[in-house]
Design a protein around this nucleic acid. Structure first.
Length: 555
RNA sequence: UGGGGUGUAGCCAAGUUGGUAAGGCACAGGACUUUGACUCCUGCAUUCCCUGGUUCGAGUCCAGGCACCCCAGCCA
């Protein structure tokens, strides 16, 4: 497959290529099967990219199927958000949108078929009793007293379950397999349980609902899935997946393949823990920019292309692992570097008065919008006597390798002029509050006719002709690489959010829209937050630029 | 003292039928630079969890260990 020559190989691709070359399958069909009980996160993105990517690369099909067999936990709201997120990621299921609940009738008939074969029975043991009878990991279980009912009795009981004649928990349908199996999953697993709860799609048509193990394999088979890719924890369930199909479904059967789910350093991926963060108010919601949810990453300013690239680079294997967050950041920067418009913003302003620049004068300097994209053009940025520069770009007593502004030193203001610091003004407490400088009119545009060099280029913004803005700086939500070690809340990073309210941005930013992405030159990539309005601009820092000076400072 | 998996660099990960350890991230140097960014060079596993064995030759085969993950929901 030369089309896929540059795509890293993995064990699943190997299986598919073999199945295609041996003629086992002429066309592959995969599926992404979320349960609509929560928001999608970047771990799901790995699965989405895998399943849809495989279908794309091997000219197959990928279905989106909601695994909605537990109405107690599922909501239509999630069905909407999941579809939105999958589309946002860049994938299209075409006509292939399915719901396991659409198969409830068929599933019921397969259950009846199993009963007729004497391979399923209605059990009246309580939940606690079922657990007791199941045995333990090292001890075999024992048969339920209801295990050997007649087919007729089972048929009648199952129908009465369906008709709502029994209370929740009083009866279940179980597969008759082997209570002594070393694999606990095979010890007469529950196939159907009674839940007198309306379903978000089937209403109150059903009061019995099929379990995952019974539903998933049959849904796959009904849809003609060839490769049913799931995560490692379902490895123990594979024998059951195959057992059910062998009893009631004609060949060929889908093949279940398991891979290791994604773990990312400095964050958590379990729905339970994510929910805990939301409910305890640790974050502002599912779309808090620090959350690993697709909604959170989107609000933070991540691009679908970066996430897809990331999912491709991490590979697919069976070893549990924790991927370095730095790889995600790398993918993001690589994408944003090519696409984000540049602008200048000063996060922590320090006023500089250019004493030899005419008072009241404003001129416009031309700035490049994206050096990687000539089509992005240029813009005009106002320059005046009073400007703001970044506080971090000035030091009264600079160390050896600091080559930004300092008393008596000359630097370049990007796209504008060279300025030299002539004076430092302090407040009563000795803090630097303002700088005085002179500019060289000969250096307009940023280069000196006499060829003299300057060691640094600073970003800036005109004091009057700039806009106030709020900037939210984000960092890892957790301070620990693996937050799952020890107490979750104790591992939080207290500095995961810093809000700057005095930032200044170019006047050209007046009409930006939520979601728009920029590179604030020399600082990082930022996007306009949902909270932003023309009256009060709000930006999120998506990811800072690599900063070798900061790295030097740390040493 | 059950069963199922996994172990290749700081982090991911590829390694055909045994033939002499890809790639990316991170990190460290250097070049370039009107972003200390980007880009570009260079370096980064005499060794593949361990111990034996087979072989001219083992990350790949065999035997025995060790470590870690998953399974005892009427969740998925």
């Amino acid at each position: 497959m030369d089309v896929n020559a540059n795509i890293p190989s993995n064990f699943i691709r190997n299986i598919i290529e073999q199945d295609l070359s041996t003629g086992k399958h002429k066309k592959i069909v995969t599926r992404f099967p979320p349960e609509p009980n929560g928001y999608l996160h970047i771990g799901h993105a790995k699965s989405i990219c895998l399943n849809f990517g495989l279908a794309r690369d091997y000219q197959g099909t990928c279905h989106l199927r909601f695994d909605d067999t537990n109405p107690e936990k599922e909501e239509v709201e999630y069905i909407e958000s999941i579809q939105e997120d999958v589309r946002w990621l860049g994938f299209d299921w075409g006509e292939h949108l399915y719901f396991a609940s659409d198969y409830f009738d068929q599933l019921y008939h397969y259950a009846v078929e199993l009963i007729k074969q004497g391979k399923a029975y209605v059990c009246e043991l309580s939940g606690d009793e079922i657990r007791e009878y199941r045995g333990t990991l090292t001890q075999p279980g024992k048969d339920s007293p209801y295990r050997n009912r007649s087919v007729e009795e089972n048929l009648e009981l199952f129908e009465r379950m369906r008709n709502g004649e029994f209370e929740e928990g009083s009866h279940v349908l179980r597969a008759k397999i082997d209570m002594a199996s070393p694999n606990v999953v095979m010890r007469d697993p529950v196939l159907y349980r009674i839940k007198k709860v309306p379903h978000h799609r089937t209403g109150d048509k059903w009061c019995i609902y099929p379990m995952y193990d019974f539903t998933h394999c049959l849904s796959d088979a009904i849809e003609g899935i060839t490769h049913s890719i799931c995560t490692l924890e379902f490895e123990n369930n594979r024998p059951l997946y195959e057992w059910i199909l062998e009893q009631v479904f004609p060949e060929p059967h889908p093949q279940q393949i398991e891979f290791a789910r994604l773990n990312l350093s400095y964050t958590v991926m379990s729905k339970r823990k994510l929910l805990q963060l939301v409910e305890q108010g640790v974050v502002s919601g599912w779309d808090d920019p620090r959350m690993p949810t697709l909604a959170g990453l989107r609000r933070r300013g991540f691009t679908p292309a970066a996430i897809r690239d990331f999912c491709e680079r991490i590979g697919v294997a069976k070893a549990n692992s924790i991927v370095d967050y730095a790889l995600l950041e790398h993918c993001l920067r690589e994408d944003l570097n090519m696409t984000a418009k540049r602008t200048m913003a000063v996060l922590r302003p320090l006023k500089v008065v250019i004493e030899n620049y005419p008072e009241g004068q404003v001129e416009y300097v031309e700035a490049v919008n994206n050096p990687n994209d000539p089509d992005a053009g240029t813009r005009l940025v106002p320059f005046a006597r009073e400007i703001f520069i970044e506080r971090d770009d000035f030091m009264v007593d600079p160390p050896k390798k600091f080559f930004r502004l300092a008393p008596g030193r000359e630097v370049r203001l990007r796209f504008a002029y060279f300025i030299k610091c002539t004076d430092v003004i302090y407040d009563d407490e000795g803090n630097v509050v303002e700088l005085r400088a002179v500019y060289d009119p000969e250096t307009k545009g940023g280069s000196a006719p006499d060829g003299r060099k300057v060691k640094a280029t600073l970003h800036w913004v005109a004091a009057e002709h700039s806009l106030p803005a709020e900037v939210r700086l984000y960092d890892h939500l957790f301070a620990k690489e693996d937050p799952n070690e020890g107490d979750l809340l104790e591992n939080l990073n207290p500095a995961s959010l810093e809000i700057l309210t005095d930032a200044r941005v170019e006047v050209n930013m007046q009409d930006v829209q939520p979601g728009e992405k920029f590179q604030f030159e020399r600082l990082g990539y930022f996007c306009v937050d949902l909270d932003s309005t023309p009256e009060r601009l709000v930006f999120n820092r998506t990811v800072p630029l690599r900063d070798t000076w900061a790295k030097l400072q740390r040493k």
